[in-house]
Amino acid sequence: MLRAIDVPQTTAEALSSLARARDALVIGGGTLVMPKVQAGISGLGALVSLSRLKLDKIAIKGDKVTIGAATTLAAIGEERGLAFLQPAIESVGSPTLRNLATIGGNLFTEQPYGDIAVCLLALDAEATVATKRGMKKLPVAELLKKGIGRDAIVTAIGFKKPEKGTWFYRKAMRRAANSASIVTIAAHCSQSKGRVAKARIALGGCGTKPVLAAKAAAALEGQKLDADAIAKAGALLIQDAAPFTDAYASAWYRARVLPVHFRRAILGE
């Protein structure tokens, strides 16, 4: 049972609130924490809300994007400068959920949810993390692997906007909308002279957290994005993936369709 819910006005207050209560959790949009609260999670004594920290600004300067951690997915979906992310945003839950769910919260979502985290991993995004010892930058890849510790707060996420034609996204779903992921593919493939210069591929539905498909990415580099190269890379995806079984799909099915959806993602089928 909750003892307290704190709604601080500043990040500093939020940090000290977290430091005071060892059994406190940070709450952003509530879509992750509140289901647990209502299901009766044990050992949770307090919530520290980010709702009044004004962490909901989107700043775009050239190709440099900074998004406040408490920015809702709905707000990101409406941002014209981030149109490349819109298909990913639309693939998460429903508009009603997206009015609450935040980009920061997405980083802490377990698969097969959390498709925006898959995108941020592919974008090689960096999180700004506030701790008692001050602010620090943390690559999203590292954050997804290690977390940030109980008493820290993600305040912002930054990344470089991909050039036109270099961003690929596909989520295999069981329903047209409001579906968790069978597999999610987000890929950033920068190109030079008609060949892939650098590829970064992130997968959802292939582990409890989004994972990087490094081998497949390496296989794409130096290649033309043609059917042959895509098929070869697609076959390598599984080497970095650990698909799981849940109510949506079996591990077998996820693994089986992963290359198919990868090809569809890249070719835009």
Binding site: I5, V7, I27, G29, G30, T31, M34, P35, Q38, L47, S49, S51, R52, A74, P95, T96, L97, N99, L100
Partner: peptide, 14 residues
């Protein structure tokens, strides 16, 4: 804006 009222701690929307 439509939201799920079951996910909103009421203190946060005072």
């Amino acid at each position: 804006k439509p939201v799920f009222a079951c996910l909103v701690p009421v203190e946060t929307v005072a």
